[in-house]
Simulated scan of single mutants.
Amino acid sequence: MLCFYIPDINTPILLLSGSHSTSKTTTARKIKSLVDPAVVDVISVPSKEDDFAAALSNNYLVVFDNSDKINRKASDLLAIACTGGYTSKRMLYSDNNLVSISLKAKMIITGIGDIVSKPDLAERCNPIYLVTISDRKTEAMIWQEFNNIKPKLLGSIFNTIKTGLLYLNEFSHIENAPRMADFVQYGAAFTKAMGLDPQAFITEYSNGNAEIVQGCNSSDTLFALLLRFLGNRNGSWRGTARNLLYDLEQYAKSAGIAFDLPLSESSLSRKLNSERNALNSLGILFEKHKGSKREIILSMADSRPTPIPKRIKVEGSDLPFDEQFELDTKEF
């Protein structure tokens, strides 16, 4: 939450999910009250670009409440708004003039179950799973208690940010940093300012993000089919996009799996290429050769052969020949 106070960095969408009676909306409203107080504190995910742009332009922090499964169009708009960008539309229905709409904001989304279904949006989310509250209180009591401690909360928040900024340079380079690296840098600095372990924060965020991305990928029917298809072929496949489309169709038919594959080999190739990172997160390695055949190579990460040590003479070595080894990896 502290990174919501830093306007110049890209901050992942805070995804509050859980079953009924987990205080998702109330938690989101409390954060909104601390960061960007407003009379209208929560809204639903807009279906139109105009409404979406209006929500973002009138709020620093937007809370999309009780969201159901987010469709493809809304996912694209949310992903753009998370890191900042533009979308275009016609100024009037009667002309061809285009107007660019700026999309940029800090965001919270609440909902039940798997709200996010697109990997590109999932990579921009920070999932928090809330547990059921056993000791329920009235709405009036909850807000009275919160408002009583709100001044102290804000004081602690700003003191933590002030101290954390002093540690910022210590985390200017984080090895194997996940997406939203600026957020990770600031988050690690703020974690240290609170007297906690920065590495624990980095690991927790990375694992949570990877889990939600993998959940999206597993629910994608093409990815699910690829996992089964490769498992049936000892973890590897090689050929053209046309060959792959045909083989997938035949495998799906023989396995009794009914779903719509991409309509052409070119759309299948584009899909795999654009989702390369998502495939990697599932352990599927995707390579595309640019030769005359434009072959595609798919393999499971744990199915590649291990290079075999080959004993060769190493020039300048003082070791006996029997102890000289060098990996011959050319064919791999």
Score class of each variant (00 low, 15 high):
197 D>H: 04
197 D>I: 02
198 P>K: 08
199 Q>W: 11
202 I>A: 05
203 T>N: 11
203 T>R: 01
204 E>A: 11
204 E>F: 01
205 Y>L: 06
206 S>F: 01
206 S>M: 01
207 N>Y: 02
207 N>A: 08
208 G>F: 04
209 N>D: 00
209 N>G: 02
210 A>G: 00
212 I>E: 12
214 Q>C: 05
215 G>K: 15
215 G>N: 15
215 G>V: 04
216 C>N: 09
218 S>L: 15
220 D>L: 04
220 D>G: 03
221 T>H: 12
221 T>I: 09
221 T>Y: 07
221 T>E: 14
222 L>R: 13
223 F>Y: 11
223 F>M: 14
224 A>G: 14
224 A>T: 07
224 A>S: 15
225 L>R: 11
225 L>Q: 11
225 L>E: 08
226 L>P: 05
226 L>F: 09
226 L>A: 10
226 L>V: 08
226 L>M: 14
226 L>T: 07
228 R>C: 07
229 F>W: 07
229 F>H: 04
230 L>P: 09
233 R>P: 01
233 R>Q: 14
233 R>T: 09
233 R>A: 09
235 G>M: 07
235 G>T: 08
235 G>E: 09
236 S>G: 02
237 W>D: 08
237 W>H: 07
238 R>K: 13
239 G>S: 08
239 G>I: 04
241 A>L: 06
241 A>E: 04
242 R>E: 02
242 R>L: 07
242 R>F: 01
242 R>W: 00
244 L>M: 03
245 L>A: 10
246 Y>E: 05
246 Y>N: 13
248 L>Y: 02
248 L>C: 05
250 Q>V: 09
250 Q>M: 10
250 Q>W: 01
251 Y>S: 09
251 Y>R: 03
253 K>C: 03
253 K>I: 05
253 K>Y: 10
254 S>N: 14
254 S>L: 13
255 A>G: 03
256 G>Q: 11
256 G>E: 08
256 G>P: 00
256 G>F: 10
257 I>R: 13
258 A>W: 03
258 A>H: 14
258 A>R: 15
259 F>K: 12
259 F>Q: 09
260 D>Q: 15
260 D>Y: 04
262 P>F: 07
262 P>T: 10
